[in-house]
């Protein structure tokens, strides 16, 4: 494991901690897309089905369990917590799941390396993760007064993706048998989706103004 990969994972973990702090600390999920959170839960479930059959390291197994646990908790809080669910912007969070899930499923079926249930679902999770942030970005555009925690959550998530690209570049040059075109392509697409957000995030940071995304 290289430093970019570790830093990327830590950013990912930190993004989830920030989100959980916001949700449980101030008892509000305002500005957070439940659709994106449910898509991430689906991504983790379909990707980590091999959790008990394909042991890589204790680190990997623990992280997988943490991601599954925390994303389940976030979805639970947003859907069922008596107080928190009242702060969910349901009317604004209108992105259609099918628009992201259906193409990911078709692409997974068309391009899977091997046709086993685990492999097709793993491929599906790669495609779906690339686009799962879109409902969140659309919701951010519609949210007036984006709070710091929400802005930082999306920023940390985008940083995680950027660091994974550095990790792949590093691995490409240091490991002979590391060639994952599908993962790389999806990863780059996913990172490009964040570009617009990053631009406005840095602009607000530089000008010391509140983050706002133009519609």
């Amino acid at each position: 494991m290289n430093v970019f990969r570790l830093a990327g994972d830590m950013m990912h973990l930190l993004s989830i901690v920030v989100l959980l702090l916001k949700i449980t600390g101030i008892k509000s999920c305002r500005g957070i897309s439940l659709k994106t959170q449910e898509l991430y839960l689906l991504v983790f479930i379909t990707r980590y089905l091999d959790i008990f059959t394909n042991f890589v390291s204790l680190y990997n197994t623990v992280m997988k369990l943490v991601f599954l646990g925390t994303s389940s908790a976030i979805v639970y809080y947003m859907r069922y917590d008596r107080i928190i669910k009242l702060t969910y912007d349901k009317e604004q969070d209108t992105f259609k799941y099918l628009l992201l899930v259906a193409p990911s499923a078709v692409l997974a079926l068309a391009t899977s390396h091997v046709y086993t249930v685990l492999e097709v679902l793993w491929t599906f999770s790669i495609y779906l993760e690339a686009v799962a942030i879109m409902p969140q970005l659309v919701l951010l555009q519609r949210t007036q007064n984006i709070d710091n925690l929400t802005g930082n959550y999306v920023f940390l998530l985008g940083s995680y993706r950027g660091l994974y690209i550095l990790n792949w570049i590093y691995r490409f040059f240091t490991e002979k048998h590391y060639r994952q075109w599908l993962v790389w392509t999806c990863g780059v697409v996913q990172t490009i989706i964040y570009c617009d957000f990053f631009y406005y995030y840095f602009l607000s940071w530089q000008n010391n103004e509140k983050l706002a995304l133009p519609a």
């Binding site: 990912h12 890589v56 991601f67 590391y178």
Partner: peptide, 10 residues
Amino acid sequence: AEDEDEKDEL
């Protein structure tokens, strides 16, 4: 088999 050892990322 080529793919097996490559699924070491999260």
